[in-house]
Simulated scan of single mutants.
Amino acid sequence: MSRPFYDRARGRNRWLTRQEIADLVGISRMQLWRWEQRKDFQREKEKRVKAYVRSLVKTRKSYADMALNGDIKAFETIVNVMKG
Protein backbone atom coordinates (compact mmCIF):
# COMPACT_ATOMS: atom_id res chain seq x y z
CA MET A 1 0.00 0.00 0.00
CA SER A 2 1.28 3.42 -0.78
CA ARG A 3 0.02 6.76 0.34
CA PRO A 4 -3.07 8.08 -1.37
CA PHE A 5 -2.28 9.88 -4.56
CA TYR A 6 -4.12 13.10 -5.37
CA ASP A 7 -5.68 12.62 -8.77
CA ARG A 8 -6.30 16.07 -10.26
CA ALA A 9 -8.46 14.64 -13.03
CA ARG A 10 -10.86 13.14 -10.48
CA GLY A 11 -10.36 15.91 -7.93
CA ARG A 12 -9.78 13.55 -5.02
CA ASN A 13 -7.30 11.17 -3.38
CA ARG A 14 -7.12 7.61 -4.59
CA TRP A 15 -4.86 4.61 -3.99
CA LEU A 16 -2.33 3.76 -6.68
CA THR A 17 -2.83 0.49 -8.53
CA ARG A 18 -0.12 -2.16 -8.39
CA GLN A 19 0.70 -1.43 -12.03
CA GLU A 20 1.15 2.28 -11.26
CA ILE A 21 3.40 1.45 -8.30
CA ALA A 22 5.48 -0.94 -10.42
CA ASP A 23 5.83 1.71 -13.12
CA LEU A 24 6.98 4.30 -10.56
CA VAL A 25 9.59 1.90 -9.16
CA GLY A 26 10.66 0.71 -12.61
CA ILE A 27 9.79 -2.98 -12.24
CA SER A 28 7.15 -5.32 -13.62
CA ARG A 29 3.88 -5.94 -11.83
CA MET A 30 4.94 -9.59 -11.42
CA GLN A 31 8.18 -8.53 -9.68
CA LEU A 32 6.16 -6.35 -7.31
CA TRP A 33 3.95 -9.35 -6.53
CA ARG A 34 7.06 -11.47 -5.82
CA TRP A 35 8.36 -8.82 -3.44
CA GLU A 36 5.00 -8.69 -1.69
CA GLN A 37 5.27 -12.44 -0.97
CA ARG A 38 8.56 -12.04 0.90
CA LYS A 39 8.38 -11.94 4.70
CA ASP A 40 10.99 -9.17 5.00
CA PHE A 41 9.03 -7.03 2.53
CA GLN A 42 5.80 -7.66 4.46
CA ARG A 43 7.43 -6.67 7.77
CA GLU A 44 8.84 -3.46 6.31
CA LYS A 45 5.53 -2.60 4.66
CA GLU A 46 3.65 -3.17 7.92
CA LYS A 47 6.16 -1.05 9.83
CA ARG A 48 5.76 1.84 7.39
CA VAL A 49 1.96 1.59 7.34
CA LYS A 50 1.87 1.72 11.15
CA ALA A 51 4.17 4.76 11.20
CA TYR A 52 1.99 6.51 8.62
CA VAL A 53 -1.20 5.78 10.56
CA ARG A 54 0.42 6.97 13.81
CA SER A 55 1.38 10.24 12.11
CA LEU A 56 -2.22 10.75 10.97
CA VAL A 57 -3.66 10.01 14.39
CA LYS A 58 -1.26 12.42 16.11
CA THR A 59 -2.14 15.16 13.62
CA ARG A 60 -5.87 14.65 13.96
CA LYS A 61 -5.63 14.43 17.74
CA SER A 62 -3.81 17.73 17.92
CA TYR A 63 -6.44 19.31 15.64
CA ALA A 64 -9.12 17.88 17.92
CA ASP A 65 -7.38 19.32 20.98
CA MET A 66 -7.09 22.71 19.29
CA ALA A 67 -10.76 22.61 18.24
CA LEU A 68 -11.83 21.75 21.77
CA ASN A 69 -9.85 24.74 22.98
CA GLY A 70 -11.86 27.03 20.68
CA ASP A 71 -9.72 27.11 17.52
CA ILE A 72 -12.24 27.60 14.70
CA LYS A 73 -9.71 26.86 11.92
CA ALA A 74 -8.86 23.52 13.53
CA PHE A 75 -12.56 22.70 13.74
CA GLU A 76 -13.04 23.61 10.06
CA THR A 77 -10.05 21.45 9.11
CA ILE A 78 -11.54 18.45 10.92
CA VAL A 79 -14.89 18.98 9.22
CA ASN A 80 -13.26 19.27 5.78
CA VAL A 81 -11.20 16.10 6.33
CA MET A 82 -14.29 14.18 7.41
CA LYS A 83 -16.20 15.34 4.32
CA GLY A 84 -13.44 13.81 2.22
Rank of each mutant, 00 (worst) to 15 (best):
W33P: 01
S28A: 01
K50I: 10
R48D: 12
L68E: 06
V25M: 02
R34T: 09
I72L: 12
V57W: 01
M66V: 00
D23I: 03
E44D: 03
Q42E: 06
L68G: 03
A64I: 07
E36I: 13
V53F: 15
K73E: 10
S28Q: 05
Y63K: 14
K61W: 01
Y63C: 06
W35S: 11
E44W: 00
K61H: 13
K47W: 01
Q37S: 08
D23Q: 07
I27D: 00
D40Y: 05
Q42N: 04
S55F: 07
K50T: 06
V25K: 06
Y52R: 11
T59H: 09
Q37V: 10
Q31Y: 09
R43D: 15
K61C: 07
N69P: 05
E36C: 15
A51H: 07
A74G: 06
A22M: 07
M30V: 13
K58E: 12
R38L: 11
W35Y: 14
V57T: 14
K58C: 13
W33G: 10
R48N: 09
N69H: 13
M30N: 07
A22H: 01
V53W: 08
S28C: 12
Q42K: 04
G26D: 02
L24N: 05
V49Y: 04
K45M: 01
K73P: 03
D40M: 07
M30A: 04
R38Y: 08
V49W: 05
Q37R: 13
K58N: 06
A64D: 14
D71K: 04
K45I: 00
G26K: 04
T59V: 08
Q31D: 07
S62I: 12
A74M: 03
S55H: 12
L68Y: 07
F41A: 02
S28L: 03
Q31R: 06
K73T: 04
Q37K: 15
L32A: 06
S28H: 15
E46W: 01
V57M: 06
D65V: 15
K61Y: 04
D40T: 07
R43Y: 09
Q42H: 00
V49D: 09
V49N: 10
R48L: 12
L68R: 09
K39V: 11
